[in-house]
């Protein structure tokens, strides 16, 4: 047995021979744990893939209810907090205590910002009757809407976000602005007129489906009429956003599934962010006391890995939930 320097390093546990062995063990243990995190989210990604795969139109329709801007901002916030975390690990390794403290604080602020934006998103969903579980306007049980009185408002809310896809090639920034302006002021662009007209006719026709979602002919016949009268709409490049009415009754009943999956995925992710914030706060306190340095930075490193995996999962969640095309 090596009796060397065991007693010199207070952080070396008795069953390890060297600090390097201990550090490597901690790392591999953390990575194995992160694998379990990925598999756990994998279950939700599977549910997502199955519902999107079998009902693409439902997802295409319902994702308009999410605010892409807030999602994109959140992505940037989380990426930035990942950067500060990685910087913090570097600072701990180099023994730069002030930088480490600042970086941990910035990372923590990133987490706060992310959760704050998430709260705004959630509360706007909640206020429009688009909440988790049975508190959702689209919630259907045994073929019946359980909250029919909220349905019209919810559809209006979602479809005011809806954006036509006609302006191909034009890119992000101006477009995002346009969309915000559009949603806020109802300022209708010329090439959106058709879609807008349809928006206004929507609640009424959707109303016909309320209370009797299995009543196929009403929804369908209007759709046929539309195809015959305006069939060219599907051929030309000018595309109308998918509306609730465009979905067949079978799919209309599945809109709430999108919200369930959205809340499950972002909710579980949010819980992970909160746990990460708690851990970073703990690191922050310890860093203030000067615990970490070149000889002992394992906790910073491991929490960093955890924070990055949370970021990594969001990297997949963002395009899958907000950027459905």
């Amino acid at each position: 047995m090596n009796k060397v320097d065991d007693n010199h390093d207070p952080h070396l546990a008795h069953h390890f021979d060297t600090p390097v062995q201990q550090y490597s063990s901690a790392k591999i243990g953390m990575w194995v744990f992160l694998a379990t995190e990925i598999l756990m989210f994998g279950g939700l990604f599977c549910a997502y893939a199955v519902y999107r795969g079998t009902h693409p139109d439902v997802f295409l329709y319902a994702h308009h209810f999410l605010d892409t801007n807030l999602g994109a901002i959140n992505t940037v916030v989380l990426l930035a907090s990942s950067l500060t975390m990685a910087w913090g690990v570097r600072a701990a390794q180099l023994g730069q205590k002030p930088i480490l403290v600042i970086m941990l604080l910035l990372t923590l602020l990133g987490g706060v910002g992310f959760m704050g934006i998430k709260t705004i998103e959630y509360s706007s969903k909640y206020s429009h009757g688009l909440w988790f579980g049975s508190d959702n306007a689209f919630y259907v049980k045994s073929g019946k809407y359980t909250n029919p009185e909220e349905l019209t408002g919810a559809i209006e809310y979602g479809e005011s976000h809806a954006m036509p896809h006609e302006d191909k090639g034009e890119l992000t920034d101006e477009h995002l602005e346009l969309q915000v302006k559009d949603a806020a002021t109802e300022d209708v662009l010329d090439n959106q007129a058709a879609g807008e007209a349809q928006d206004q006719s929507l609640p009424a026709s959707a109303q016909s489906n309320i209370g009797n979602a299995t009543n196929a002919p009403a929804g369908l016949s209007s759709k046929f009429a539309e195809v015959e009268g305006d069939g060219s709409a599907y051929v030309t490049s000018e595309k109308k956003p998918l509306t609730y009415e465009d979905l067949d009754p079978q799919q209309q009943k599945l809109v709430s599934q999108f919200f369930q999956i959205y809340f499950l995925m972002t909710g579980l992710h949010g819980i992970h962010v909160l746990v990460g914030m708690a851990l970073i706060f703990w690191l922050f306190i310890r860093a203030l006391r000067g615990t970490f340095g070149p000889k002992y930075f394992v906790p910073v490193d491991l929490v960093g890995l955890y924070w990055h995996i949370v970021d990594l999962i969001w990297i997949f969640l963002f395009p899958l939930l907000y950027l459905i095309h």
Binding site: V32, A35, T36, E37, I38, L39, M40, F41, G42, G43, L44, A47, F132, G133, S134, Y139, K141, S256, Q257, Q260, I261, F263, L264, L268
Partner: peptide, 24 residues
């Protein structure tokens, strides 16, 4: 490591199904 987390999420979904009525 690879299987147990999937059971965890399955059971969470089942609990959510009973508690909140999500319908996965």
């Amino acid at each position: 490591i690879l299987a147990t987390p999937v059971l965890a999420i399955t059971l969470l979904l089942l609990i959510a199904e009973r508690a909140f009525g999500i319908g996965i």
